[in-house]
């Protein structure tokens, strides 16, 4: 009856393997998606209507800026980092172009560039970087904790990604947020959204009639 015993061994090992797989899957689910998942700062906007709230950061002139400082005027807010070669300088340049087209009305708008790379984007670095763009753009940086707190309230995503040769890059939300004068979410301008739609959005935000 050796063959019977063999079958028993085989069956019991199958049960063991199946049990192991089941436990592994449960554990994986628990830690990644389930109740054991780490509270993540990377949550995509669950509800964009909830975007907004408090923050405390440091601007590119070294002054402390909080959400109270941007109340009373609508705000155009963008997230990026100064080691970003394409999207960030392009969007900052787009924003400067929109300000120009808005003319004097642009003075009724806060324009904020939030660094998602506080390790490299010091106050001095932000100041140097922004000197190429419209002086009305306010650069914000802060401690990692300050950034994390702001990302939670404003529901933007950022993640540090190591590069093979050393160094790192950042994945990040690259939409322009439009906030109303109470600091609540109004709308977004997507990357490379046409001027034809970006400017009317800004005029609506500012409560001014379309030009022409």
């Amino acid at each position: 009856m050796i063959w019977l015993r063999r079958i028993r061994y085989v069956l019991w090992s199958a049960v063991g393997i199946a049990g192991f797989v089941a436990i592994a899957v449960m554990l994986g689910w628990w830690t990644v998606d389930g109740p054991g998942a780490r509270a993540t700062r990377n949550a995509a906007p669950a509800s964009i209507a909830e975007i907004g709230g408090s923050f405390t950061m440091t601007d590119h002139r070294g002054r402390t800026v909080t959400d109270r400082d941007i109340r009373g005027k609508p705000t155009m807010m963008f997230f990026g980092f100064t080691s970003c070669p394409d999207v960030c300088p392009t969007t900052l340049s787009d924003m400067a172009g929109w300000l120009e087209e808005l003319g004097p009305a642009a003075d009724g708008l806060n324009v904020v560039f939030v660094s998602v790379d506080p390790a490299r984007d010091t106050v001095e670095q932000m100041a140097a970087y922004l000197s190429l763009f419209d002086p009305r753009i306010l650069g914000l940086t802060g401690t990692p904790a300050q950034l994390e707190a702001m990302a939670r309230n404003y529901r933007f995503y950022y993640r540090r990604v190591p590069l093979d040769g050393g160094g790192y890059t950042m994945d990040h939300t690259a939409m322009v947020y439009l906030l109303n004068q109470d600091g609540r979410f109004a709308s977004t301008i997507d990357y490379h959204e046409d001027r034809q739609t970006a400017l009317p959005k800004l005029r609506r935000l500012l409560g001014i009639a379309p030009a022409g």
């Binding site: 999207v87 990604v161 093979d164």
Partner: peptide
């Protein structure tokens, strides 16, 4: 110092660059 070919993707408003 280094020049590489990277891709850039935009997905759900999130920008990613990869070698």
């Amino acid at each position: 110092e280094t020049i590489e070919v990277h891709s850039m993707t935009m997905d759900g408003g999130i920008m990613r660059m990869r070698r």
